[in-house]
Simulated scan of single mutants.
Amino acid sequence: MHVHKTVRGNRLKIALFSLGLFIVAIAGLYYFLSFKKTHITPTLEGTWICQQFLDSIAAKRSVAAVKVSPMFVQISFKKGWTDSVMCTGIASTYRMQLIKQKKGKYLLTRFTDTLGTIKLKKIFSFEEKWSGMKWTYIKVDSVFKGMDQGKVFHRSLNRILIAGKYQPLKGTSLLKEIVFSDSGSVEGIKGFAKYKLCYGKDCFRGTLPKDVIFMEGSKRTVHLAFDLAADTLNVYTVSRSDTVTQFKLYWKLLRIK
């Protein structure tokens, strides 16, 4: 009698153990399938910048001369779920969602609006829904590093246009050597410690065809215009009367090779 009870007990344990394994297997399969369905492909993970836009700026040595800008200059994809896409636009960074349509094609959405389509390869192209423009992006970092407000793009833009060392040819409050770093700091100009280049349409109002630079100090931020001629950086104050824009040369700086 004791032997039969022991056998029945063992069978019950085996049955419960098998049931447990079955439940774990089903749960694992469900998780795997849902993960595969919603997880961002490893090819997308990381930070991408709009190289096509930067190439156009480099070719013209000007942002204003390009006359058009992409909806997003930098897009970051976090390893994880589809609502962890950070897109840096003209003014700020937004959290987006990515919806997979088919292999290599995704919809980028915000709230109920589809903003455009991402087509993925080693580079990816983003087609804006509202304008029909297509922009090409390249990966610059394989790891998502949070909402950096487009710092990677800004660094690239600064390097293309004005980052470097200069000596003054004309202007006041200038030391013997001026250094614009690619991170946005400036040395050698009294009263200013940072700068930022404009890459959006709004800040070009009243300065076209020249570009815009914001010089920032502890007490003030100044809105100036600039252009590049060979190795010379010309910076201007801007004044408007009626529909006439006047530029007055403020600093003239020669790049030190």
Rank of each mutant, 00 (worst) to 15 (best):
L120H: 03
A65D: 14
E45I: 15
S62F: 10
A229F: 11
L115M: 08
L249C: 02
V140P: 05
S131A: 05
T88I: 11
Y137I: 03
A91F: 11
I99W: 00
S218I: 06
D182M: 10
Y106I: 04
R155L: 04
K122A: 14
L228P: 01
I256Q: 09
G200V: 05
M133C: 03
L115H: 00
V7E: 10
G89Y: 11
T207W: 05
D148Q: 15
L157R: 03
G80Q: 04
H39R: 06
K67L: 11
T6Q: 15
F72S: 06
S84N: 15
Q74A: 08
F180T: 13
S241M: 02
D148P: 00
K210G: 01
F153K: 01
L44C: 06
K248N: 13
R240G: 03
K121H: 14
T136P: 01
R159G: 00
C50Y: 13
A15W: 08
I99K: 10
G191F: 13
T207E: 00
E216C: 09
F247G: 04
R110T: 09
G20K: 01
K13Q: 08
V66M: 05
V179P: 02
M1L: 10
K252R: 12
R220L: 12
S173I: 02
G20R: 01
V238G: 14
G171T: 11
D148M: 12
A65R: 14
Y30F: 02
P209A: 08
S185P: 02
I123Y: 15
G20A: 00
R8C: 06
K79F: 12
F180A: 07
P209W: 11
I40D: 01
V179H: 15
M133V: 00
I123H: 12
L253I: 08
N234C: 08
A58W: 03
L197K: 07
G184Q: 10
V244Q: 13
L12E: 04
I160N: 00
A65S: 11
F35L: 09
E177K: 14
G28M: 04
S56R: 15
T237E: 02
T117P: 02
P168F: 15
I99E: 11
S185M: 10
D55G: 04
V3Y: 08
R11Q: 09
F72H: 08
E187Q: 10
I40T: 02
A58V: 01
V238L: 04
K201A: 10
